[in-house]
Design a protein around this nucleic acid. Structure first.
Lengths: 157, 157
DNA sequence: ATCGATGCAAAGCGTTTGCAGGGGT
DNA sequence: ACCCCTGCAAACGCTTTGCATCGAT
């Protein structure tokens, strides 16, 4: 569904290169994450993979997500509220997100990470940061609002 | 230090209008927050107000921050990592933040909330969102990187 | 045989809640 | 008198960790 999602081979390679094993659990977690397009929580991934791996534990899902994040195969998205669950993103590149304030779902936006965004957005700000000695290594842009309501499949955080 | 910070009277008024009482604890929490410029966590505010209010509890600090946020006197900033503490902002307006990846400190950026940011950043994206029925009510822009190291006063999350 | 990964249970951390006591209007 | 607030303690949700077992090289 998305051109930036990796296949088993690419994920296996990425894990292997980092000295991590491409276990069935890790690959299943990645598959499940890549198949869901509203960026599920760890608990949701856990429920979704249980039919395939009935003996998997939630702790293993967390560890798998950590391993996948370590090799850049997934991104962990910050919780919307303190104490809320983090959500995960199977894309390996940077992009913007839209977060629904009603359901907590996160959708990808068809835009790309733009290293020059700050410069373009506000040259004076970029200049000011440089002058103050702040080294900017990245940014996060997140839109929020409300997605069209769906008759089913709703989720609340 | 910052023109958008409110005085006791304004905070008291805001609380009163909402049917909330301007208690010493709430005002002290607001004062402390306004006096710190790296956007402390609830625990840090708690420690900072203890000398003035030795009997205050952490729960009261949380409740005070909630009350202040409810009337718009403070903003709660999402945790950087899942399970990490939220940070609080004494400014009543919207603006961007710079988050230090080393210390977790958050600094204000001298920019303002721009309702037309999405339109300006990417008109095609704005159009696409409208077409798909997504209602955008706000956004969050956060830069991260590294602040100049300080000889003292460092903090890690 | 080695060494990492799994899965279970328990701990950890930030935050919220229940509730009795207290204070302002 | 009323109602909100405080402060203590306990509960809560999400995540991580300790540890014995398992599995692949």
């Amino acid at each position: 569904m998305n051109s930036t999602r990796l296949g088993h081979d690419a994920v296996s390679d990425a894990l292997g290169t980092a000295g991590l094993r491409p276990t069935p659990q890790r690959l299943a977690v990645y598959d499940q994450l890549a198949a869901m397009d509203d960026h599920p929580t760890a608990a949701e991934v856990f429920q979704a993979v249980r039919p395939r791996l009935p003996r998997i534990s939630l702790a293993t899902v967390y560890k798998a997500l950590e391993a996948l994040a370590a090799v850049g195969a997934v991104d962990r998205l910050n919780p919307a509220a303190a104490g809320g669950p983090a959500r995960y993103d199977a894309r390996g590149d940077h992009h913007y997100h839209f977060r629904c304030l009603r359901t907590g779902a996160i959708h990808d936006l068809p835009t790309r990470y733009d290293p020059a965004l700050v410069e373009r957005l506000d040259p004076a700000l970029a200049d000011d940061l440089r002058r103050r000695g702040f080294q900017v290594t990245g940014y996060r842009l997140e839109l929020f609002g409300y997605q069209p309501s769906e008759p089913e499949g709703e989720r609340r955080e």
